[in-house]
Amino acid sequence: MGFFKRRTILIVLVLFFIAIQLFSLDLRERNSQNPVSKLVLNITYYPQMAVSGVTDKAVSAWRDYIDLMHVNEENKRLREELLALRQEKFESAEIKAQNARLKKLLDFKDVSLYPVVSANVIGASPSILRSQVVIVDKGAADGITEGMPVASYNGIVGRILLASDKSSEVLLITDPVSAVDAYIHRTRARGIVKGVGSGCVMEYIENKSDVSVGDKVISSGKDGFFPKGVIIGTVTDISPSGSFISAGVSPHVDLNSLEEVVIIQKSVNNVVLNE
């Protein structure tokens, strides 16, 4: 204690310079294999799951209550829908059977390019410094490794930043550190989609490129993380940026109300080999 008291300012200054040195490590290239970091993620997994479970139940109970208020008309509508769906199911089964036969005929291999793992969001970043990080309930035990792309049925969400046994951290595409190699779907103009906190911006689009507001932005697959052709978002505005064009991109996925995601089990090594 006496040591601290006599040299407080000196100690704080030394700590400050250590912090600068540590921060100088490139955030993208950092070794995320630190077992202590993984231990922290593992320790917080169970309480986060518990809180997330309780919150989900409370939200679900509230929604049920709201739903009950409209249950009569809903019931009537659902009965009608059920009849229609039964008819559709019958037709769909017929089409499925026909499809299977045709697939066999064409020797079509019905396999997806990469296996996927579905995961629930159980937590998020506790700080305002880097709030574009969420925690999901799947980890190394489920085959998840750092760098794997994360998506939802609506498009790209982010990529795995740190994976412990039970849970993983996902860096969202809206984080300023995130970068995705992308195309404008309509014209194939290429650029890099970077996060800006509230949304994204597509930078380094060539000046002569044809880009319009409303254009869809898709992943190019050339960054080694994300598979090709997955939707990222829609162009909202365009502005010149030096010798390039910069386009504001609104993510297709509502990242603020993210509940379930899909982790695409595509390792960085696979990407290098396959693409």
Binding site: I18, A19, F23, V40, L129
Partner: peptide, 17 residues
């Protein structure tokens, strides 16, 4: 350190501050 890890695995920024 827990803040660092859960805020996107930061390099000791919260630990030291």
């Amino acid at each position: 350190y827990m803040m660092d890890v859960l805020s996107g695995n930061l390099p000791g920024t919260f630990t030291i501050s």
